[in-house]
Design a binder for these strands. Structure first.
Lengths: 336, 336
DNA sequence: CTGTTAGCGCGTTCAA
DNA sequence: TTGAACGCGCTAACAG
């Protein structure tokens, strides 16, 4: 490579150096086989000497393909999201795509801004996992003909596929089972602010089911912070009447906050209280006592989403809706 | 030509609709103030009617800026990496940058491939946190004039800044302290395959220090998997002579594997064995017993890295090397 | 097999 | 204040 690389070499420079036209250079770097070995070598030599790398920007503009796919997520601070992200990036790489992140931070406004960026960014497609966005907004993106895979809503169209995550029915099953074995049981739902639409739906669905069955769920409000919930619960369990029931928590770390606070207040688990985590990750079996949780392999969800998208891009996707149902993993924090 | 863009309006369409030239449209969308209110309105109306969104690709080609910055990381499966990623994306968003991911999967070959993609991708700059890459490879990227912030190596140049993470000296302090209070102590280092250069350096540095002081460290080889290490350690602790010493683990979850295996084998913590995690995350204080760990706020590292990069892009960065020293957080898994 | 030419969508002179 | 023309780096016809 040349020492002086102040200006990046372009296809013109390579053509000139190799003594051929730029069309020939283009053929070589794109692996078209109608080029003589000899001229091919001239070109590759020139490329090496100049340290030439094609500009993805110019290429994208010319081909109307960016080999770039957008990923819309609320953030990268939760383990389950990162597992999913990991699945996506793995598969994207296999198919030769780059991924660019559009982080929405659990705010509707922010989500809409990011969507605008997504549209401008000229990605070849996108995977959306963000429950701030409703179906209308998804369809809005569709106006720009961006192939989409949506996680969390069931929708499909010519260039739109989706994956649903069913925590709802599993949670109802658990509830049913809980009341059967504990007729006088008490269910407590950790109602975390800004937990997202999915959690809100889950809560509402639970409330509806229980009230239809003559039971009542008590909501415990707190914030999405281990520390905060932990100290809240330390106080909570000081009240003797609070030391029983089933506690439903959105995520592992919040379930741990409840469990740790309970234990330190002398509450027996699972004898006095039971705890489950809705979105289980590996930490639910790492901590002690282990946390019973609803599980969906989110790494797999991520990989399948990305695989669906690559097929969608080729127009080869037939099954446009994919459903994941969570499995209840019974562990030490519940009796059954 | 892909049918992807069949309906998408371009700047020409807007110009036509508004009855002006495309230069005027360009002025409007870029907020230049030398446009009459009246024509401005014509243009913005046309934009709304057509749902026009400028193409970042074309814009990037014309301006030689992509408003896109690259992030090179080994993966998104570890909590500490995701914390850092989170810090980066937060700040990038504030400064109006998109982020595209280059995932290297802890393989040298893969890392080099991703670097090539990074160069082609025409990002305005990049943050690199990947200890597979050595300094020569960083300099190679520099040939392409891509402003860089490197995490983990101390280097600096006109368009290169760096952040160092000092776990080394803290670990040596801990070691020193351990031998002082436990003269006949035994240090065990969990030597995980593919843990990366940083961990290898840490191990070598520890071995060097201890041997220089007439002590010896025993290496326990295992793989980067909680499950695997857990079962390995369950067997390990069955041997009575193994039930003592200080165990140094790369990450929280691996420390938990050691701790859980030990406890289930009847080993007392911290009385018989002590355990520390090198890279501590919030899980080190969530689990019980809590894990003593070396801590650096990686969210902050990520945000500072990104902030440095944005300044570097403006040529306003003076302090080009930033050092983070880990703090030893003493918790229940060690005596002191 | 190779070169010429015309775009891809946009920013930016330079005139008017 | 506005418009015409050119260029960013590359691909894709179409000729030869």
């Amino acid at each position: 490579m040349a020492d002086n690389m102040k200006d990046r070499a372009t296809i013109y420079g390579v053509a000139k150096r190799a003594g051929v036209s730029l069309a020939t250079v283009s053929r070589v770097i794109n692996g078209k086989n109608n080029v003589t070995e000899k001229t091919k070598k001239q070109v590759t030599d020139a490329i090496k000497e100049l340290g030439y790398r094609p500009s993805a920007l110019a290429r994208g503009l010319a081909t109307n393909k960016s080999t770039n796919i957008g990923i819309v997520i609320p953030g990268t601070n939760y383990v389950y999201i990162c597992n999913m992200l990991s699945g996506m990036t793995d598969i994207a790489k296999i198919y030769g795509y780059q991924t660019t992140l559009f982080v929405t931070r659990r705010s509707k406004e922010d989500a809409q801004k990011e969507i605008e960026k997504l549209i401008s960014s000229h990605v070849d497609g996108a995977v959306i996992f963000d429950d701030e966005l409703d179906e209308n907004e998804i369809k809005y993106i569709q106006n720009y003909n961006i192939p989409l895979v949506v996680i969390g809503h069931e929708m499909s169209d010519e260039r739109l596929a989706s994956i649903t995550l069913d925590y709802k029915s599993t949670l109802i099953d658990i509830t049913k089972d809980y009341y059967e074995r504990t007729p006088d049981g008490q269910i407590n739902f950790l109602d975390i602010t800004m937990a997202g639409n999915m959690m809100d739906d889950l809560r509402d669905n639970l409330l509806q089911y229980t009230s239809a069955n003559g039971k009542s769920v008590s909501l415990i409000h707190s914030e999405d912070s281990y520390q905060r919930l932990y100290s809240d619960m330390k106080v909570y369990f000081e009240t003797p009447s609070h030391r029983h029931g089933l506690f439903i928590c959105p995520r592992d770390s919040l379930a741990c906050a409840v469990i740790n606070a309970a234990i330190e207040d002398g509450v027996k688990i699972p004898d006095e209280i039971e705890v489950i985590s809705v979105v289980g990750t590996k930490y639910s079996y790492i901590v002690r006592p282990q946390v019973s949780s609803l599980e969906i392999d989110l790494f797999e969800v991520g990989s399948i989403a990305m695989r669906m998208l690559t097929k969608l891009l080729k127009g080869e996707l037939d099954q446009k809706v994919f459903r994941f149902k969570s499995q209840f993993a019974v562990r030490g924090s519940t009796k059954k």
